[in-house]
Amino acid sequence: MPIAERGADSGRISARFEALKVEGRGGLVTFITAGDPDCDTSLEIIKGLPAAGADIIEIGMPFTDPMADGPAIQASSLRALTNGQTLAKTLKMAKAFREGDTETPLVLMGYYNPIYSYGVDRFLNDAKECGVDGLIVVDLPPEEDEELCIPALKAGVNFIRLATPTTDDVRLPTVLANASGFVYYVSILGITGTREIEADPVAEAVARIKRHTDLPIVVGFGITSPDQAQSIASAADAAVIGSAIVRKVEDRVDDNGKAAPETAAAVLEYVGELAAGVRKSTR
């Protein structure tokens, strides 16, 4: 889709990557599932993320059938849904976050059906109004761009594209054609949180994708330690950590799915460790 036909976005994503460039380091992108294990706890976590060192926040929109996710995020989605999380509540959480933070980019990540059910136009309108800067929808490849990607770009909401080890040089232009915000490189063949990442092939892949686009490249799926976060944030523009953070929530949930009082603090402390790793990265 020609740039001229795209609506103006919030500018927060590009501003954040510009700032990272000035700092000379890679960024930290954190993922947690909205409503896991409950609305109040996850909002407390989200609100604390920027101070803990997250540069970009991804909020998972829980879905019953998260086909690209491993056990940790599957379980977190179910915890959230069991406790009554809905897409409307997730948007409300985004709004509550945005009221206290006007700079940190906020990206919603999930699967298409809840959005389709909510209504694409209504969703984009509400997402924009709630201060959402971008969308990552796992089951919408470029072949289905008419569904949500094009309407999102027109509405000024970034549609963040996934590239994977199977996305070869022939296919990359197709994947990047309507990409915006940044490109999310899925570093492993597999689902989230199940295989350990290796820095060398990632650096090669990032270099390969950079030959096709000027957009920032973030890398995720398989980062579990501050050291890995540091090396990936040196090889790419930012490192995404999801399952490892979500497991910290899981660790503090009792058998009835209730959060312990210190859940948010423990999660944020772990994010702080990851942020310290990322801050040692050099670009």
């Binding site: 690209a68 490849p141 996934l162 994977t164």
Partner: peptide
């Protein structure tokens, strides 16, 4: 119908 799959599967 359509092809609503993750990018990893799309080339396949």
């Amino acid at each position: 119908g359509g092809r609503f799959v993750a990018e990893t599967l799309m080339p396949l």
